[in-house]
Design a binder for these strands. Structure first.
Lengths: 163, 163
DNA sequence: TATTGTTATACTCTATAACTATA
DNA sequence: TATAGTTATAGAGTATAACAATA
């Protein structure tokens, strides 16, 4: 009996795990495609949102929060600072560290990203009626809690290999 | 009004898209972790399953089906052939092409993978009762169909960048 | 001594294009 | 001419370890 003839109803095609991974990864890809015209990667958005959420974090704090190597933060912040959406300001209490600040342009960019996210959300939710969508969110949230996933950090930012 | 104070109930933390991407990506990471002791990557599993599903495909057909560059198939097949789970056999009708065949060891390996997959599935499904699990699968399948995702191919195998 | 940001280096994974042998 | 498999090359992205300035 080979894979195709498997009698079990939980072959890969029917499994929750494979389905979830496929749909989840595809959702991320679509979001990245929508972001591309802004010359922005999902990881940039993750960083910008973390800065907004943490106030004026140091690069070390950001690295710890996002699960990235600190040396990786350097290049991302360089790029975003060159774009004028993020600023390194001196930390008056510790001259080794910076405070990262969003600029007005950065907040405006996050506004654009929010609109892109809303369109993405609408597209993804289109096949579901409101009740179904609520049910899906509720069940997914249950899984996320069971796995102790942080609420506002994407696990794809942390891994060792290239994206 | 900044991101944290957003009044909309569809901020990133509450969105279906972000939740789905997080849980889906994490599910894939967990599967990869479970596969690691076998010195196997999810992409190897995808390739082996495709070979099993397609019969005795050429590398070109495999590349097209998985959405990979043909040159990428070469290294993956090299590695799996060295392990003795896959064989290149001459195609009697076209001496340019190979037929890829699973070996007995390859089928045995896919058996191990199926057991790992079942454990993974059980772990992932643990927070849900059977009814909830069925509902989740049904809704996810609806999304997968709407996006025209192939049933047995993972979209993460196709992208341009490194995994 | 320890920590922050940075740089240097090496590694992994990938696609593209050129190559060969067949068709 | 076109196609299957292969190889060579270049590029992107990452972590690790070593560095200077500061604590």
């Amino acid at each position: 009996m080979n894979e195709r003839d498997a009698k079990h109803p939980t072959g890969p095609e029917e499994s929750l795990a494979f389905l979830l991974s496929k749909v989840g990864v595809r959702a991320g890809q679509r979001f990245a495609e929508r972001l591309a015209p802004l010359d922005l990667h999902p990881r940039d958005v993750g960083l910008l949102r973390a800065v907004a959420g943490l106030g004026h974090p140091s690069q070390q704090l950001l690295a710890a929060r996002l699960g990235m190597a600190p040396s990786r933060i350097v290049g991302l912040v360089d790029s975003l600072e060159r774009r004028g959406v993020l600023e390194r300001r001196p930390n008056p209490d510790d001259r080794r560290a910076y405070e990262l600040h969003l600029t007005d342009a950065g907040r405006a960019l996050l506004g654009k990203v929010a609109r892109i996210g809303a369109a993405h959300e609408a597209e993804l939710s289109a096949p579901l009626d409101p009740d179904e969508r609520r049910t899906l969110v509720r069940l997914l949230r249950r899984l996320a809690e069971a796995q102790q996933l942080p609420i506002d950090v994407h696990p794809g930012l942390a891994r060792g290999g290239p994206p």
